[in-house]
């Protein structure tokens, strides 16, 4: 990506305020309400630096979750949570049963690294499950929890097929990635994408990202990385079962499960109707039986 010409308007290191439409300078994206935005996370260029995790925590004022060691590769974050909205998974490929191999193939990374995040599903199960309307679709086509409305019922937590939304027991609300809703409103690209040094996390308009991703897949396949595929693009894995598509989608080179992603998640709200109709039918059938029993004179003389 070449430098934007407006970059020359800001030669000084101290700025008086936010650069208007800064995202044009940092990400080549103009942020306008009414369009769909998302993340394209290309795991093949992730170097596991965790700058995204740090940038996210810094911008969103999120406390640390734990400062222990998991003993599982270099991943001490473990999982997405109420306080961790980006999680870099380290999957160690070499070795067997937790024992690292003594030798590595030349020019190959021994790890799969993947910066996981809320998928901002098109038909988001958390949003559909939310009984208060606290979770909503923004003007940028992203999914956000309104903290002043959430009453901590926690129903969005089991609704999410990716295990993303999480409840904070301290403040009693659920939290997840907002795709930096506040930054988007101010013309800034999300903190994680801005911080990513390898463009593993790309922020942009969804149609542009899809195109970039397809190009990238083509390049990789040409180079012999035949196993590369997209997770979360329309009709792809991760976007199954009526979820539509995922606004945050991924380029992966292993089975989804290896990254702790479901191969074929489903839309939870599709089960409302079958459950309700069957339940009411059962009640109705037993009620008819009750009417029959109550109306009969059988047994009254005994």
């Amino acid at each position: 990506m070449g430098l934007h010409e407006r970059i020359h308007h800001y030669p000084q290191s101290d700025l008086d305020g936010v650069i208007p439409n800064e995202s044009e300078l940092t990400g080549g994206v103009t942020i306008e309400p009414g369009r769909s935005y998302g993340f394209f996370t290309d795991t093949t260029v992730c170097i596991g630096c965790k700058a995204c995790e740090v940038a996210c925590k810094e911008w969103n004022n999120l406390p640390a979750d734990s400062i222990g060691l998991t003993g599982q590769s270099f991943d001490n974050t473990g999982m997405l949570s109420a306080n961790t909205w980006r999680h870099v998974a380290f999957v160690e490929r070499e070795g067997d049963r937790g024992v690292r191999a003594a030798e590595q193939a030349p020019f190959q990374s021994g790890w799969l690294m993947m910066s996981d995040v809320c998928k901002h599903c098109h038909n988001a199960p958390c949003l559909e499950a939310c009984p208060t309307g606290a979770i909503f679709k923004t003007e940028f086509d992203t999914v956000v929890v309104q903290q002043d409305i959430c009453n901590g019922c926690g129903y969005c937590v089991p609704a999410c097929p990716f295990g993303v939304v999480a409840l904070n027991e301290v403040d009693g609300k659920v939290h997840k990635c907002t795709l930096c809703y506040d930054r988007l409103k101010g013309g800034l690209e999300p903190a994680c994408a801005k911080a990513c040094p390898t463009e593993s996390i790309q922020f942009g308009e969804l149609s542009d990202l899809h195109e970039k991703a397809r190009e990238r897949i083509g390049v990789l396949h040409e180079r012999g990385v035949e196993q590369a595929y997209l997770y979360g693009t329309p009709d792809g894995p991760g976007a199954t079962g009526d979820l539509g598509h995922l606004n945050a989608f991924f380029l992966l080179t292993e089975r989804p499960e290896v990254y702790n992603l479901p191969a074929a998640p489903t839309r939870a709200s599709n089960r409302v109707r079958p459950s309700l109709t069957t339940g009411v039918a059962t009640i109705g059938a037993l009620a008819l039986l009750a009417i029959g029993l109550f109306s009969s004179d059988r047994g009254e003389g005994r």
Partner: peptide
């Protein structure tokens, strides 16, 4: 993924 939970149970 190292036997970690993939979903979060309902709270």
């Amino acid at each position: 993924d190292y036997g970690r939970a993939q979903l979060k149970p309902a709270p």
